[in-house]
Simulated scan of single mutants.
Amino acid sequence: MIDHIGIKVADFERAKAFYDRAMEPLGASLLMMVPPEYTDGVKVGGYGRDRPVFWLTEGAPAGEPKHVAFTANTREEVDAFHKAALEAGGRDNGAPGPRPHYHADYYGAFVFDPDGNNVEAVCHRPA
């Protein structure tokens, strides 16, 4: 149902460094930077696996921090995402593990990104 989503980040280069590391275990990477002539010089970049679906835009984040969950294909990817995100400067917000209160096969991990957004990797497949 959702085609793509974006968030504003206070320090684009710091956020890019974080997401470059955190997305790698999920098989995602920065796929596109919008040319500055289309953004009035604001840095805008899109992450994804086969097309950009998660966008970072340079600027003051508006309102409360956001929650974004990324699909992992395996529980091992969730574990690797959490480890990479912490190594990239994220703060732990929930170690990898089952979350049966969501559903029986829900396995997720949560971190706060450099702007305080709650970023999650989740696998819905049975163990």
Rank of each mutant, 00 (worst) to 15 (best):
G46V: 03
G63R: 10
A62P: 00
E87C: 01
N73F: 01
A84N: 02
E76Q: 14
T57K: 13
G46E: 11
T71E: 14
F70A: 05
R49Y: 08
Y47R: 07
A84K: 02
G63N: 12
N73A: 15
T74L: 10
F81T: 11
Y47G: 05
G89L: 01
L86F: 04
G63H: 11
V78N: 03
F81G: 13
G59D: 03
R51Y: 08
G63P: 08
V68M: 09
D79S: 05
N73Y: 00
F54L: 06
P65W: 08
A72V: 05
L56D: 04
A88I: 04
P65E: 08
R49Q: 15
R51S: 13
A85P: 06
T71C: 12
K83T: 15
G46P: 04
G59T: 01
Y47C: 11
A85R: 10
E64G: 00
P52E: 09
K66G: 00
E76R: 15
P52V: 05
L56Y: 10
A72C: 09
G59E: 06
G63K: 11
L56V: 03
E87W: 10
G63D: 07
L56G: 04
V78A: 05
D50E: 14
E76M: 04
Y47D: 03
P61Y: 11
V53Q: 14
A60Y: 01
W55V: 01
H67G: 03
R49C: 03
P61W: 09
A72N: 07
G89Q: 05
F81D: 11
P61H: 11
R75W: 13
E76L: 03
R75G: 06
G63A: 04
A60G: 06
R49P: 00
F54M: 10
G59L: 02
F70Q: 03
V68Y: 04
F70L: 12
G48K: 12
A62E: 15
A84M: 05
F81L: 08
